[in-house]
Every structure is written in structure tokens, then in C-alpha cells.
Design a protein around this nucleic acid. Sequence first.
DNA 1: TCAATATACTGAAACGTTACAGATTGCCAA
DNA 2: TTGGCAATCTGTAACGTTTCAGTATATTGA
Lengths: 348, 348
Amino acid sequence: MDRRITKKGDDDTSGKERPTLKTLAFMTGLGVTTVSRALKDAPEIGAETRRRVQLVAKQIGYRPNRAGVRLRTGKTNVISLVLNTEHELMSFVSDIIYGVTEVIADTPYHLIVTPYSRSQDPLDPVRYLVETGSADGVIISRTQPNDPRARYMLERGIPFATHGRTDMGLVHPYHDFDNYTFAGEAVRYLAGRGRNRLALVTPPVGLTYYGHTIAGFADALSEVGASEVPFNTVSIDQSIEQIRMRTAQLMRRKDRPDGFVSSAAAATLAIVAGIEDAGLKLGRDVDVVSKQSSELLHLFRRELLVVNENFRLAGSELARAVLGWIGGADPGSLQSLSTPSEVLPYRG
Amino acid sequence: MDRRITKKGDDDTSGKERPTLKTLAFMTGLGVTTVSRALKDAPEIGAETRRRVQLVAKQIGYRPNRAGVRLRTGKTNVISLVLNTEHELMSFVSDIIYGVTEVIADTPYHLIVTPYSRSQDPLDPVRYLVETGSADGVIISRTQPNDPRARYMLERGIPFATHGRTDMGLVHPYHDFDNYTFAGEAVRYLAGRGRNRLALVTPPVGLTYYGHTIAGFADALSEVGASEVPFNTVSIDQSIEQIRMRTAQLMRRKDRPDGFVSSAAAATLAIVAGIEDAGLKLGRDVDVVSKQSSELLHLFRRELLVVNENFRLAGSELARAVLGWIGGADPGSLQSLSTPSEVLPYRG
DNA sequence: TCAATATACTGAAACGTTACAGATTGCCAA
DNA sequence: TTGGCAATCTGTAACGTTTCAGTATATTGA
């Protein structure tokens, strides 16, 4: 069945059909080739012709057919955001998405979301995208120091950006939050309040920023002369209940910490619940510094100390980076690091 | 510049190139037409040929080229989720996305996210999608009783599903949470605890579920003989600070409410903050029943009373609905309503 | 036996775009 | 005048798919 409504004749300018190059060619009396080139400012088209074509195109609202372009050139005008469906339950995903869409709004690009589940190899969705040529650029998160996805995409020459850095001696665009500084500042702040037995709620083991975080934590600890209370059984991608229970256990011991540094807001809620389960009071018995991506923690407990991480910004930076690489920029110049805010106590 | 690496000859089965129908045709010794039809189980293809083609296709990992299909047939294999970038900051967006992706995972469909900002006409992105033929199906939220987007898509004959119902006498797929029942149950529960001066934190005025919510609230109020404390200056898409401030003002008045029904978790945080700003205590001076989409409110204050709304389910249902309509099902049969959980107090 | 018919397959055209290899025109130098 | 060249423009083919209108072969009916 043919979708077209008008009959086979080529010369219809009449109907409701979407205009194509052929339509423009007919209206201007030029050939489709000329029209095509005029629209992309090719040099061998006369200045007046060019203006004329572009005017008509604007008037009738011509938009290139994506399928045509994609079939002919391989260019999809698609950026794919690859997301883990299990871990990234947490809200910040929508912030990243909005950050990305903000940047690509004025471009011909579309954003497609490519999910994968815990059980899958994280490489699967990336391989799919590359093999089927479904995107011009890819954004991945949950980046690892030695990340097979980044390695694969570098090999295959497809532009991408990672949320978080790698450590493979390979250069590619990324955006990262400076978690080394975050953890360090958190420790220094707690030390400033006289806390000196600190526990760290780490990012997921294996991700690059896990390393950054524990390094910042450890370095600052020795700098200020505080000590670490090991809390290795907990990381932020565990369930709320797990974290809460483990925290309560920890806080009932005599050698309990008097300060926490938490890498995620959701985990912080659980930490606080655990602290209170153990009958202790936030701000008196223990202080908690936590990252957050929306301004909610101070509503939760005003004693909490927060550092803001802006995921919408991350999304924007990542989008800019991929687009930059697609546009031919040097990958090494498309790396950005976001500096943590100061540690912020509640200000009434 | 030609993308292809191998030379012009048509008969390459050698290289790393992605297999096409032509490749399959060459390998099987058939024509491309036959291969095409064999792959889609057309009746005029011999049973053995069909199996042979499908086997080879599986072996070499043939996947139809989306651009080719789209150009020829107009089928995009894309579902678009249209989102407001300003209001829907709140976390549940990611849940919807994951719900959608879960359903389309085993289909050839991709999910694209089409954003629009507050300033824009909500119809704009929908018009864009339809005019450029960018999607086979659309999912919209923030549905209004008389929704121009739904009307437009019905006119243009493009399958869609709405998150929330309309009230235009037109039939189309939707998924909705039963907010009438939610508000009613909340009132009854509060009345059961002896609360009889209740305030409602409404959904955004103008959306369909605003009406459902206030109706459920009002009906239950008169049923149990409680009275409403007007709180019209507040709705859930206001800023945290606004809600908090207004709540504090309200709670300092002598005719303050002794119960709240809140339509969103984020607003509830602000409500509680406002209550406490006024020096009152949750559970003693006032009770709050709130919807939530993740299990966080009980961590926040255990005195809170919650009702769960599952947005991941909503995403799945919406996706199923659009796919169903695309697949030719009766739109009227693709409507679903999700029943609220009971009101849940904290259970240690 | 012959025509009608069913079965299994096929080439060509088209969707909208861009790259390639011309074609046409005018102008200038020799 | 003529050859050469630059400036503009154009037709054809190709990307991978599906549909249309066949063709070739076997099967059936009388």
C-alpha cells in the first residue's frame, strides 16, 4: 500500500503532503541536486539562487526527511543515552535527561534512551547501537576505570562521552563530579566540628568514582589526623533497608563513628534512619555530610550537611561533549570536571 | 564520500559490512524480494525456502535497516514520550521511562524523549512529531479534561496514550491512577483518627486529576462529616519554599487544619517543614496522608501516612496501550485505572 | 490435449537524500 | 576566432526496503 494520497504525478505542490527536495525543485524551477546543495550552503551555488531556495524552503516549512538522510549518509541525528534500569532508579536520571535535551533542543538531534538490566552485560546495548548504526553518539554512565564500553567505542570510532572518568590511558570526552574534593572537604568540615572517627558510605565498588571518593576521604583523614571507622559492607546502591540495618548495627557498637560522609542522598536517608534506630541524635552524637542532587535533605533533617551535585549540568556537559566530538573537535578538549559546592549547613 | 569499505561489487559476503537483504539473497541464491517476503512469513513463499532464509538470517545476524524500512514504509518503530522539562523535575519521570523501556525491550521499538518547556505551547512537540512523522506512537502526560493534544492526534490518526484521562467524549487509550479513591480513602482514614478539619494539597489546576482529586476529597468529607480548610493558594507544582511558607502561615492561624491530604511526596516534605516551622508536631497536632512513588516518606517522618503510586507500572501500561493501538487493537480496550493501595502507617 | 490456475519466485520502481560525473554558459587570453 | 577555464547548474545512481506487476513451472479440470 502506498502512503501517498495524491496520485503518481510528480508535480504536486497542492496537497497536504510533506514537502521534499523534489517539491522545492519544482517550485524553484531548479534541479533537486541544486536545491540540496543550496540548502547546505555549498560553494558552487550562486548567491542569489541560494537565497531564493532557502527562502522558499523556510516559507513552506521544508524539513529534511530523516530516513532519507540516514539511508543515504548513515547519519542518524540521534544521541543515545545508555542507562541501567536497576541501579539508576534514583531520581537524578531525569535531571540528566533534561540536561541533555536542553542542549540538543536547537539541533537536529533526537535523544533515545537505551536501557539495559542488571543481568545483562553492559556492553550489550552499546554493541547493539554501534552494530546497527542507531546513533551518531552515545552517552554512558556508571563508568569504570577500565571500561570495556569506552574501549569498544574508541575501537569502533563512534563518538561518545562518559559520565565519570576512566583510567585506561585512553583519551575521550567525559564529565565528572570531583568526588575526591567532595570527600576531602566533607572530612575537613567534620574535623572542624570536632568529629574524628569517620565512616564513609561509598559509591558502588568498581566504578571509577569509588576510587576517587575513597582516596579523597583517606587523604583528608590523614591530613586532619582523624581516623576511619570501616563501613565496607555498605555502598550506595544497596537497598534502603540494608543500609539502614547495617548503620543501626554499627551505631550500637562502642567504637561507633561520630561522623559520616555519604555519596548519595537516598543512602543518607537510610543512614539517618539507622542512626535514630540506634537511639542516637543527628547533630549531637553524629554529623552527616551528604551529596544531594535536589534540595531535599535539609527538609528531611536540618542538621544534615550537604554538598550539591548538579545532574542537569552533567547532562548538558555530556551532550555538549558528544556533539563536539561528532562535530570534529578534539576529544581531549571535551572533558570537564565539576567542582563541589562548599559543605552547606542548614541556613534557616 | 562513500561509507562502504569494500569495493563496488555487489557480491561481497566477505567483509565486516552489515548484512542486508542483498547479502541474504546472494547467500541463499534467491532474489531480494523472495528474501524479504520469506522473512515476514508471506504466504506465497515455500515452506522450506522460508525456513532456509530465516535460518541464514539468524546465523549471520541480519537486522533490517531501520532507515530503509522507514523510508519505504513510513514506519519508524519509535515511541515518543513527550515531557515537560519544568514541572516534571520530580523523580517519577525516570520510573515512567523505565516502565516504558521494559515493555518495548522485546520489540523493535526505540524510545525517544521529546521535551518541551513551560513557555512553549504543549501542542508544539506533538505537532512536530506528527508533521515530521517521527514516531509511530506518542505518550503524553499532564493530561487535561479538554486536551488539545489528544484531540489533534485523534484527528491526525496517530496512536497515542495519555497518562491521565480526558473528558471530551472522545475515546483513546490511557492509564490513570484513581485519584478520586485516593483522596476519599485519605479523608476517611484521617476521619478515623479523629481528624475533622482537613486541607487538601491539590494537583496542578487544569489537569484532569485535579478534578478527580478534589471531587474524591469533597465527597468523602461530606460522607464522614468533616470540613475543609481551604488551602487553594497551594498546589504541588509550586516550589518547595512557597509551599512551606504558605503551610507555616496556615498553621499559625487558630482555625488551622488537623489533617492534610497531599498529592505528591515532594510537596509533603514542604508541608511537614511548614508544620514544624509553626511549632507543631506531626502525628500529635496534625496528620498527613500523602501519595508517594518511592518508599521514602516513612524515612522522612515515620508519622506520615502514605499511599503508593507506581509510576513504573504506569509507564508499562502506557507503552502497552500505544503498542496495542499501533497493532490495531480497539482504543477503548486499552484503558486502565490503577487502584490506590490502602493508607499505610509506618510499621516498624 | 489444451487452457486455466495455482505455486513459487523475480526484476523494477519508488521512498528522499547526497555524491559523482558531467553539461551549459560566459568570459578571457592568445 | 578559438581554446581554456571558471561559475553554475543538472541527471543518474545508490543507500535498504517493500510493493507492483509480472514470469516460469507445475498442477488441475474437462
